[in-house]
Amino acid sequence: MQDLDQSNTSSNLGHIRIVMVNTTLPANIGSALRAMKTMEISQLVLVAPKTYPHPDIDALAAGATDLIDKIKIVDTLEEAIEDCHLVFGTSARSRTIPWPLLDVRPAAELALKNITEHQQEVAIVFGREDRGLTNEELALANFHMTIPVNSAYGVLNVAQAIQIVCYELRMASLNICSAETTNTSTDKMPVTDQADMVWDEPLVTQKQMQEFYPHMEKMLEDIEFLDPQNPRLLPLRLRRLFGRIQLDRMEYNLLRGVFSRVQAMSHGTWKNNNNHNED
């Protein structure tokens, strides 16, 4: 049973990627790799690192250098998470709009639940050493994740934070496997905090949602509900709403169709071709 649990844990953790944004110190990349390998997480995506490659990465990886060849380099955070279904943005402070916020342990449990039940791809995003993630970057996440540190000295190096998060992810996976609750034969959707139900459509990816939001905002502009010169917090609040819901494919296509119909009607270009004749 232990070998089976370890195998399932390895499979589950293979759906998780660590994303580091604009990392300045190469040593932090190497230390992150070392932290990841100890917890059997192997996917690292670097978003526009300041210095890469660098000897310090190899030196600090110390036994995890095999993961260096697996590193993916991208230019934007959107690219890093485009095929993910669930994204956690790490944050140590409150923002303009409160986002759904989870401590690292329940966040890890949620991530593994979605992996085991839906086979979702999950990203955990870490920001710059000096200032973390921007509000715009955090708005790309479904949830914000925080580590409950000492309030009098809440200072964590980014590699240390990655170690803590990876540990919690591994423990969540081991707990699920040992309890034999993993069931990949049916796809379930969290309806409430207490109940799941069998779901008939896959959830959409972040890439699809990054096409959804501009379409929705353009539709709202066309009907003069959103002022593009003074949008205030409306786009951000809508992103929070739909990020929390997690649309499935059918719902996504339905809403995109509604947006297109509303736009066509607002422009006077929609024609109802239904002739209402019975066959």
Score class of each variant (00 low, 15 high):
Y153K: 08
Q206G: 04
M216Y: 07
W199A: 10
C177P: 01
S185P: 10
P202K: 04
E180N: 12
T192L: 04
T184W: 13
Q210A: 07
Y167C: 11
Q194P: 04
M209D: 07
H215R: 07
I162H: 01
S178G: 14
P190I: 02
V158G: 00
T192S: 12
R170L: 10
P202Y: 00
G154R: 02
L156K: 02
V155W: 06
N175H: 12
I162P: 02
Q160S: 07
P190V: 00
T192N: 12
T181P: 04
M189W: 04
V191C: 01
Y153F: 13
D200P: 03
N183C: 12
V155D: 08
L174D: 05
V204L: 00
C166V: 00
M189E: 12
Q160T: 03
I162F: 02
R170K: 15
I176N: 11
Q210R: 06
V158T: 08
L203Y: 06
V165M: 02
A195Y: 08
R170F: 09
D196I: 08
Q194A: 13
K207C: 05
T184M: 15
V155E: 13
T192K: 01
W199S: 10
N175G: 12
Q206A: 11
N157T: 05
V165Y: 05
V198I: 15
N175V: 06
D196S: 06
N183H: 06
M209T: 11
L156W: 03
R170I: 03
M171V: 11
I176S: 10
S173N: 06
P214R: 03
D200H: 12
S178D: 11
Q208F: 04
Y213D: 09
T181V: 15
D200C: 05
D187V: 09
V158M: 02
A195L: 05
M209L: 13
S185W: 07
K218T: 15
N183F: 04
D196L: 15
M219W: 07
G154W: 00
G154L: 05
A159L: 03
I176F: 11
L203T: 01
Y213I: 07
Q194C: 14
T182N: 07
I164N: 03
T192G: 13
T205W: 00
S185L: 14
T182K: 12
V165P: 05
Y153W: 08
E180Q: 11
I162V: 14
G154P: 03
T186F: 13
V204P: 00
R170G: 04
E217A: 07
V198N: 08
D187G: 11
D200W: 07
Q160G: 06
Q194Y: 14
V191T: 01
W199T: 09
I164G: 01
K207P: 01
V165G: 07
L156G: 05
T181M: 13
E180C: 07
I176K: 14
E168H: 11
A179R: 12
V191Y: 00
A172L: 03
